[in-house]
Structures are given as structure tokens and as C-alpha cells.
Design a protein around this nucleic acid. Structure first.
Length: 671
RNA sequence: GCCCAAGUAGCUCAGUCGGCAGAGCAUCUCACUCGUAAUGAGAAGGUCAAGGGUUCGAUUCCCUUCUUGGGCUCCA
């Protein structure tokens, strides 16, 4: 057989016999590679291992440990799950099932139950489905690619209405494309043909799919777990039927699967709702209504410290402090445009004698009133107005989530009015300021999104204005050396924006800060300044929230620190424990001395054993536990038991006080 | 808002195939006075989310509502 020439990713050429497959090539290169090969990329298109190569192909072998390999594993696993569900639930049909981050899902519609409504899964079904999946894996069914005419495909999938919609091109499924009248499918023939297969002309399972897939159900697929059942609308549209979605997670190795499950456990332990309860920080009383929180003293002190810190940084950063009321006449929100666009997201109106009032969903209209309260000169710009402004938004009940999605919250909100010429430097300074403040809260790893102009018709402003604004934002990102992704068309109708995301202690990312460029509202609300030329100009308006919402930021911090707030934020920084009652007097002296240097200190008397008092203090995540006994009274020392460190006895009290005061000072001056 | 699940003491949970409601922790009282992650005894604490229905009898079964959780959708 004649040889063909293949080009590998490093640019080297390789001669292989004609008829060599992707898998064959991998084997020819190295046995180890063949073992890990999941699929290949042929001339930029991903192909199965059985794909036959042609002369001149550029080929890369994709392995199980790569992102694309893992994607394929998850994709193949979701086919196996669909087969299992169709086996176990006769009459069930299925919609789409893509791989997603960490796993996969598939959407199903189950036959109607006795009440005529579509059936639903129960949690125990997951075990049955998983067991059936393991059987399918053991059968080592091949994944067989085929292309059918759409007529033939319609016959095969005649009993599956969602598949018919996909064949007809009415639905958009990234993983099962139709093209030039041909429908791509993947079949998994069973070891023993089904007595009553759910597809016409096939003994077992077949699905619409672009592929590629692992070679067989036995290869690479064992390390999965079905996670949960959820409702999901067909094609994500709430007007469509609600389907039953099963989510699973799948990995290349058992170690990876275990690590992921462990990470989930770790995340659950850090859940801010649980920590808020355990540490007595805040609560969501039912009597108060959904999505509303009350802050208990310990959460309150942390919040106050965060707010104090924010205020002091803003004061130094050239911001001016303003206050605006929590309700406002609807006319204001008509002028700002919020009532037109976002009324559904606002709390309902209150009718009053001189108008209709709404709880404010945003602070900007109020700040604009301050800007517009008198004639402004270019000499005053940039004008930076800052407010810890509490807003109310009517979030749909099903979307509420602890502090992360809440109906009443306080934004650390700022609106900056500047001239177009100032915008560049202002944004750059702003981004630097934002990152500096976030660092003080222990975040080191940042990413950003630059969201650009949406479809032109839906936006306001000129092409030049958008281009300049976007360039200003991009220049700021680059000047700060901040990694960013461009979210094309992700901007608001009034301008582009930067969103800053942080990575927390266990690697999750949270979107926090936002810097938005606004061409619209200043014009809408008639804001003007007198320029150097004596003429009136419309200012550029920058919306900026740093924490975003204090509540949400607090929730993120709580999860980031797993409840162990750094000393400068800890509700109780030091707890003093006298060994016996006769050390009480000295313990009080210790408390007084530490309080005198500004520390938050309490003490617990000896009515319980020392060990238990220490245990409780550790549970409360107090940074420093001090034990004082006979030796300490005699020598004016303390026994220091720091959070996460070793016990150090006989530390002079003055030295300890100085050390902790310095630590707190340092933590607050990170920049 | 929609789908599914769940609401039992302050917290974490068990339990009742329909017959006087249980534990641990927390709280309070008493005793113990102890040097680095749980001292002992006792007490108190509940309209079993709310309302309705079935029943001799409902915390338990059914219906409705509310709340919470996981998703979908949404997030100016």
C-alpha cells in the first residue's frame, strides 16, 4: 500500500501507510500516546480514532488529559446516560445533552403519569440509571458514526419529537448539527438487541450527534457520577415545556473524579449561608420576607469594618460622599430610563398624594440630581460621587440565593462625571484603585471581561464614541497588566464595560467589580457642564461598583476565608481564658490592656474546662486565644494559641499587644 | 415565575406503616477550679411551617399556601 504523508503539530512530517486511522497514527508515534488518545484533530476538525487519514492531513492527537479530550469523555458519557434512561423508562424521549464545565447533562421528557402530566425522576432513579450505565460500559459498545438523509433520520427518530425538531433545523444544538441534507448520528449497538428498541431500524441506541466520541463505552468512561435532577425548559425558553435534566460529572481518572467530589464537599463546608448561621453573623428570617437579611452583631462588626475601610479609601481616592433616599418619585426613574426598561425588576409602586413612588433599584438617578443641582464647570471634573446606597430589586423568588442574590442590598456605588478627554486617565486610575482595594481583602488573582457593543440597533452613541470608550477600557486593562477576555456584544445598551473577577481560596471565580461607560443617561437627564470654550457639553458618566453589593461581597469573603476572617476583620480578635477563677482579675487586666490598643477582646471565665473553652473559641475561628494562669500572673505574660499555629507560652503581654496591633495595621494598609 | 425536593426544640438531625414527640449541641441551675480542641448532674425548651380535608383520632395520609434547597429563566 502506498504511503501518505501526515503533518504533526510540531511541523514534522510523517509517512504512514494509506488507510492509517487517527488511532493508528497515535500507535505509530508512541504506545503511551495510543493509550491516552481519545480523538484526533484532523485539519482542525475533531475526528474519531477510527477516522481514516488522507495524504497531506495535519493531525494532532487529543489525549484524555487535555481539555478537549475531557470534553469528549463527558460528551460520550452523556450518550450512555441517555441510553440508560431510554432503557429504564420506556416511552421516554430526550432533547439535548452536551458536555458542560465539570460534567454533562441530558434533558429528558418522561411519559405522562396517572395524572396526565409528564413524568419526573425521583432521586432514587439516579442510582438505577447509574447502575444501568455501568452495564452499558461493561458491554463495550462501539460509538459508530454515520450520516443519514434527513428523510431517513426522520423515520429513525419518528418517536422523538425534540430530535425531529433538531432534524428540521428548528432547534440549535451545538453538538448535533445537520448540514447539506445529511444528519450526523452516533450509534451504540447493544450486546443483545433490544426487544422493543426506541428507534426504527436500530437494535439499540442512536443519537443525533456531530461527535466525535471515545471509541467505545468501555474506553475512558468509567469515572462519572450522576449528581442531580433539575427542571429545564426545552431550548431554555420558559414558554416551552419543562424537561427533566440530569446533571453528572465525569473525569478522565478516578483520582480526578475524587478530587472534584472533594472540592464540592469543601465548597459545601464553606457555604456562606451555613457559615453565617454557624458563626452567628446574619440570618434571613422568614418573617422578614424572601431575599432580605438581618445582620447580627458579629456580622455587623465585620460589615462596619468593611464599610469603614471602603470609606477611608474612597476619601483618600478623591471621592465625595453623598446620600440619596431609598424611595423616589417615579418621574425620576422615567427620566433615567429605568422605569421603561426595568420596571419588572423594581419593587412595586406606592401611590401617594403627590405622585407614585418606587423603592430605588439604582443610585445613579439620585447622583445625577446632585450633579444637576447647579451649573457645573469643567474645572470641577472629574466629579466623583460616592454612596453606600441601599437598593431594592424584585428578584424572582426562584433566583434568590443567600447573600449572593438578594432583594435588598447596599452598593458601594460611585458615579464619575468627566470630560471625554479625562476618561482615559480616569478609567486607568479607577481600575488601579479597584484592584488595590480588592487586594486588601485577600484576593490576589484577578481576571476581567471587556464587554463590547451589542448589536448596533440596540445601542445608543456614535461609532467613534463606542470605539474610543472601548479603547479606553482596554488601555486601562493593559496598563494594569490584567488578563482579560473580550465579551463581544456583552456591553450594556449605553456603553461598554469592564467586569473584574477574583479567584478565591479554592479556585472559584466570582465577578465583583464593574466599571461601566455610559453615553446615555447624562444626555437623557440633561446633565451638562460648561467647558473651557464657554459652551455646554454633556459629561461622560462612569458607573462603578467595587464590592458590587456589600452583601454579596461579604458572602464571597465568607466563602473565601471559610469563615476565618483575617485579624483585622475578625469580630473577636482575641479571647482571654483564665485557667482558674483566681486568674480572673489578671484576665480582666489583659482584656483592658488589649482593648486600650484598639483590639476587640473578650474573655470566658473558668466555669468550663479549659479544653472546652479553647474548643469553642476555635469553632468561632477567633484568631488568638490567650490562656492565663499562675505563671502569667506572676510574670505579666500570656500563653498565645493562635488560629492555625503553635501554642507559645510565656509571651510578655506588651509584646503580644504590639504584635497584634501591628498585624491589624499591616493588613489594612495593603495596597 | 416554572420543575423537583424538603420544612420536627435556638442549631444539626432522628422518629411516628395514623394513637401523649426524641437525641446531640446550645441555653438555664447546681457541683467541679481545671495550663491548651468536649467535667458531671439536673431543668427548661415543640400549635411537628400555616390553613383546609379524610378519620373516633392527623406531626404522620390528601389538597392549598408560605418558606427553604437544587436547577431553568432572569440579573439594569
Amino acid at each position: 500500500m502506498a504511503d501518505i504523508t501526515i503533518t504533526l503539530p510540531d511541523g514534522s512530517a510523517r509517512e504512514v501507510p494509506a488507510g492509517t486511522t487517527v488511532g493508528g497514527l497515535a500507535a505509530a508515534i508512541a504506545r503511551g500516546l495510543a493509550k491516552k488518545a481519545v480523538i484526533g484533530s484532523v485539519n482542525g476538525i475533531e475526528r474519531d480514532l477510527v477516522w481514516e487519514l488522507a495524504d497531506g492531513d495535519e493531525v494532532a492527537i487529543i489525549t484524555a488529559d487535555s481539555e478537549r479530550g475531557l470534553f469528549t469523555i463527558r460528551h460520550s458519557t452523556t450518550h450512555v446516560m441517555a441510553q440508560a434512561v431510554l432503557d429504564l423508562f420506556p416511552g421516554a424521549t430526550f432533547a439535548i445533552g452536551p458536555p458542560v464545565e465539570n460534567g454533562f447533562y441530558y434533558d429528558f421528557e418522561l411519559p405522562p403519569g396517572a395524572d396526565g402530566r409528564p413524568g419526573t425522576f425521583v432521586p432514587e432513579d439516579l442510582e438505577r440509571i447509574e447502575a444501568r450505565m455501568r452495564e452499558i460500559l461493561a458491554e463495550s459498545q462501539p460509538f459508530i458514526r454515520d450520516e443519514l438523509t434527513s428523510e431517513r433520520a426522520r423515520e429513525v427518530f419518528a418517536d422523538h419529537r425534540f430530535k425531529l425538531e433538531i432534524i428540521d433545523g428548528e432547534a440549535d444544538d451545538p453538538t448535533s448539527a445537520t448540514e447539506s441534507g445529511l444528519v450526523r448520528t452516533y450509534e451504540n449497538p447493544p450486546a443483545t438487541p433490544s426487544a422493543d428498541p426506541p428507534f426504527h431500524g436500530y437494535p439499540g441506541f442512536i443519537d443525533l450527534c456531530r461527535g466525535p466520541h471515545v471509541p467505545s463505552t468501555k474506553a475512558f468512561l468509567g469515572h462519572f457520577k450522576l449528581m442531580r435532577i433539575a427542571g429545564a425548559y426545552w431550548r431554555g425558553d420558559e414558554k416551552n415545556p419543562m424537561l427533566q435534566r440530569i446533571y453528572g460529572t465525569a473525569w478522565a481518572t478516578k483520582a480526578d473524579l475524587d478530587a472534584h467530589l472533594l472540592q464540592l464537599e469543601e465548597a459545601a463546608k464553606r457555604d456562606h449561608r451555613r457559615l453565617a448561621q454557624d458563626l452567628d453573623l446574619l440570618s434571613f428570617p422568614e418573617e422578614l420576607g424572601g431575599g432580605l437579611a438581618v445582620w447580627h452583631p458579629k456580622g455587623g462588626i465585620i460589615r462596619k469594618l468593611m464599610e469603614d475601610y471602603s470609606r477611608s479609601r474612597h476619601a483618600k481616592g478623591g471621592y465625595e460622599f453623598v446620600y440619596t433616599p431609598n424611595i423616589a418619585n417615579g418621574k425620576l426613574f422615567e427620566a433615567s430610563g429605568h422605569l421603561g426598561f426595568y420596571e419588572d425588576g423594581m419593587y412595586p409602586p406606592m401611590e401617594m398624594d403627590n405622585g407614585t413612588y418606587y423603592p430605588k433599584p439604582m443610585n445613579c438617578p439620585g447622583h445625577n440630581l446632585i450633579f444637576g443641582a447647579r451649573q457645573r464647570s469643567y474645572r470641577e471634573l472629574p466629579l466623583r460621587l460616592f454612596e453606600l446606597g441601599t437598593v431594592y430589586r424584585y428578584e424572582r423568588s426562584g433566583t434568590l440565593h443567600g447573600l449572593m442574590r438578594i432583594r435588598g442590598f447596599t452598593q458601594d456605588d460611585s458615579h464619575i462625571y468627566c470630560t471625554p478627554a479625562q476618561a482615559h486617565d480616569e478609567i486607568r486610575g479607577l481600575l488601579n484603585f479597584v484592584l488595590s482595594v480588592l487586594r486588601a481583602f485577600g484576593f490576589e488573582d484577578f481576571e476581567a471581561n471587556l464587554s463590547t457593543r451589542p448589536a448596533k440597533a440596540e445601542t445608543v452613541g456614535t461609532d467613534e464614541g463606542w470605539a474610543e470608550a472601548t479603547d479606553n477600557l482596554r488601555a486601562a486593562l493593559e496598563a494594569e497588566g490584567l488578563a482579560y477576555e473580550v465579551d463581544e456584544g456583552g456591553g450594556a445598551f449605553y456603553g461598554p464595560k469592564i467586569d473584574v473577577k477574583v479567584k478565591d481560596a479554592i479556585g472559584r471565580t466570582w465577578q465583583l467589580s464593574t466599571i461601566q461607560y455610559d453615553f446615555n443617561m447624562a444626555t437623557r437627564m440633561g446633565l451638562e457642564y460648561v467647558g473651557e470654550d464657554g459652551a455646554r457639553h454633556t459629561p461622560i458618566m462612569l458607573h462603578r461598583a467595587l464590592f458590587g453589593s456589600i452583601e454579596r461581597f461579604f458572602g464571597v469573603l465568607l466563602e473565601h476565608y471559610a469563615g476565618a476572617f483575617p485579624t483585622w476583620l475578625a469580630p473577636v480578635q482575641v479571647r482571654v481564658l483564665p485557667v482558674r477563677d483566681d486568674h480572673d482579675a489578671y484576665a480582666r487586666e489583659v482584656v483592658d490592656e488589649l482593648q486600650a490598643v484598639g483590639l476587640r477582646v473578650d474573655w470566658v471565665d473558668a466555669s468550663e474546662k479549659l479544653g472546652n473553652r479553647i474548643r469553642k473559641a476555635k469553632g468561632e475561628k477567633v484568631p488568638y486565644v490567650l490562656v492565663v494562669g499562675d505563671d502569667d500572673v506572676a510574670a505579666r505574660t500570656v500563653g498565645v494559641n493562635p488560629r492555625g499555629g503553635e501554642v507559645d507560652r510565656g509571651v510578655p503581654l506588651d509584646a503580644f499587644a504590639q504584635r497584634v496591633a501591628d498585624e491589624v495595621d499591616d493588613q489594612q494598609h495593603v495596597s
